[in-house]
Design a protein around this nucleic acid. Sequence first.
DNA 1: TCCTGTGTGTCAGAACATTGACATAAACGA
DNA 2: TCGTTTATGTCAATGTTCTGACACACAGGA
Lengths: 151, 151
Amino acid sequence: MDRVPAGIDLDSSLGYLLKQAASALRSSMDAALRPLGLTVPQYACLELLAQRSGLSNSELARGAFVTRQSMNVLLQGLERDGLVTRPAEPVAGRALPAQLTPLGRERIAEASVVVRAVEARMSARLDADQEVRLRELLGACVAGLEASASH
Amino acid sequence: MDRVPAGIDLDSSLGYLLKQAASALRSSMDAALRPLGLTVPQYACLELLAQRSGLSNSELARGAFVTRQSMNVLLQGLERDGLVTRPAEPVAGRALPAQLTPLGRERIAEASVVVRAVEARMSARLDADQEVRLRELLGACVAGLEASASH
DNA sequence: TCCTGTGTGTCAGAACATTGACATAAACGA
DNA sequence: TCGTTTATGTCAATGTTCTGACACACAGGA
């Protein structure tokens, strides 16, 4: 039986639907990245670094929606695998700017391909106009939530 | 040398925006439920049971987007706190249908209020028509992702 | 000058969720 | 009847993430 036991109210709940979509995306990305030996948070970290080299641990954590403690252990793993390098000591302040190694650049290039394929599947049923609209609507949701989420 | 992003442009990535929205929702719900002594997965479990009493552990797990192992320990906690009851032995098959206790019903009623308030904040910037459209678009994304998801 | 606030990195512990595996139970077809 | 498939509950081990806490580095104003 493939009938999902969802109640009537839950089907009309925007939050539940959002969670469902995020969960489906997470599963698909996880499956797509597994052959490359990358988890979703690891991919997120590498993708952030590919676009903005030299981000600190805390900045990466905010960008990947995890705590800086989690990002720190994640970064240590990527460093151990030779995908990322960090200076042994901070040049200014306390931040340790991270950078991709050539191997890391190679890996993120492969990962981007499969992740792009997943995103294409996700928006396969949407035309260009609907995709733009969805982005606007999601942005409005984020803005509404963060409006009163201060401290 | 022109600056060509090697990977996905995160600012225009639908997946990134979806993750951002889900993360903001999770944080807001977490903060709203904390005074009640409930985590988000616990709330999800109680909400599912409130709408469809007698769901089994596995059904609850699917509905809350976690593994049945995780849902099992979660249910044990709720049972220990007296919010949920399960028969000691299965009546048919192996499934153990869970039900809310009066205390559980009371707790989920309180939790529903604060969660509904969070959802209202999320859709505060959306009119009724936009909200319907967002539901449709998210549904299309889920359908697209699950179309080629190998179970 | 002091010193308060914000941001950062790091440590330890606990809480959480997952993977992998096994045995049981019902449904279905050969 | 038997065997396969599918679904369930449970156990063990592992991995992940978070909470809580501390120390350090800059910027700003009193």
